[in-house]
Nucleic acid binder design. Structure first.
Lengths: 192, 192
DNA sequence: GTCTATAGATGGATAGAC
DNA sequence: GTCTATCCATCTATAGAC
């Protein structure tokens, strides 16, 4: 029994909670379940996370940062052409749904299972969606196409479908389908 | 206290439960909440629905039948051309997301919030999705297009996006976006 | 009196929080 | 570990319609 608190305790608890929240849904997972799996005491968990609501919010906030890093890295390799950056963004999202145990987008799942979107976690989830959509709109706006609003709306709809369809039965090909469709829309829109 | 059993008791309970389940999610609604809202006794609810799981399953089953009737009615007015029937199907789905208090597709929401898809309610939800997708595939197969699999996959992705995007902030135009995109894909695919 | 509805007490399990 | 609250589900008690 170490008296000194392990510095990675908070991260380990958050890792454990994130896995359980994502796999079974936020509401279906109890605090005791997280405590058992993380092998920590109750007092330790409540010292790091004062309530379940804050633990959920930090789970989504960390997921948002993780996705943000992946998208930033993909953007670094995409060059400066806005259409290439747009494709790279969609590719990064398509890659994130390719996991064999993919169970849907954590933000969209949270918004689907919790009706109140005005709490801390809900604002993170809606903020993530709005940021993703704004990123697409910004890329399209820089592409000098005839109808940027229409193109951005269509791509966003496909992105929404990508995250949802991949979690449903028979959704293994959703990433390829979304990517080919987005590429075709971009190609048609940028054709001289 | 009426001795005569009201013949619409079961439907009234199911109506009440359906509203609550859809608005707040299945897991967030308690049986007592339904009992209070439906103004019925506890024993009466449990006589009609032996468990919450069965009540949820009947909620989804009735929703499936309701949607099925709407789609069948739309199909009756679409004539016999498979592309017209396909468009009518997508139009009917687009109409169902136009409600101002739309909170997502009940089947997709259920699958998002409950991880186990092998129970009675889960099979109804997945069955609805598979049926909808098969209907699209059947219509496209009758259209004599060059690549029916690709077209059906793309339309299904858009349909998934339609149901998801309409429930998210800024999703008011999702129905129009999905419809115009599907119409364009069908037009391009059937062009001689 | 008989039947059925409602209302409330209750059981056991589990929730979040201290 | 403990506390309170709530979950689903069952059972009992009572009030009213026939």
């Amino acid at each position: 029994m170490a008296r000194r608190p392990a510095p990675d305790t908070r991260e380990r608890i958050l890792d454990t909670a994130a896995l359980l929240f994502y796999d079974h849904g936020v509401q279906a997972v109890g605090m005791q379940q997280i405590i058992d799996r993380a092998k920590c005491g109750k007092s330790l968990l409540y010292r790091e996370f004062p309530s379940k609501a804050e633990l959920v919010a930090e789970y989504l906030e960390r997921a948002r940062q993780d996705f943000g890093r992946q998208y930033a890295e993909a953007d670094d390799h995409a060059g400066s052409d806005p259409s290439a950056r747009l494709i790279a963004f969609v590719e990064a999202m398509a890659e994130s749904v390719q996991s064999p145990d993919y169970r849907g987008c954590p933000f969209r799942n949270y918004l689907a299972e919790v009706a109140d979107h005005d709490d801390s976690a809900g604002r993170i989830a809606t903020g993530y969606l709005l940021d993703s959509r704004a990123r697409i709109e910004d890329f399209v706006a820089d592409m000098n196409v005839a109808a940027p609003d229409v193109l951005a709306e269509r791509i966003w709809l496909i992105v929404e479908g990508l995250h949802t369809a991949a979690a449903h039965p028979g959704g293994a090909r959703a990433a390829d389908v979304a990517l080919s469709l987005v590429r075709e829309l971009v190609r048609d829109a940028t054709r001289v």
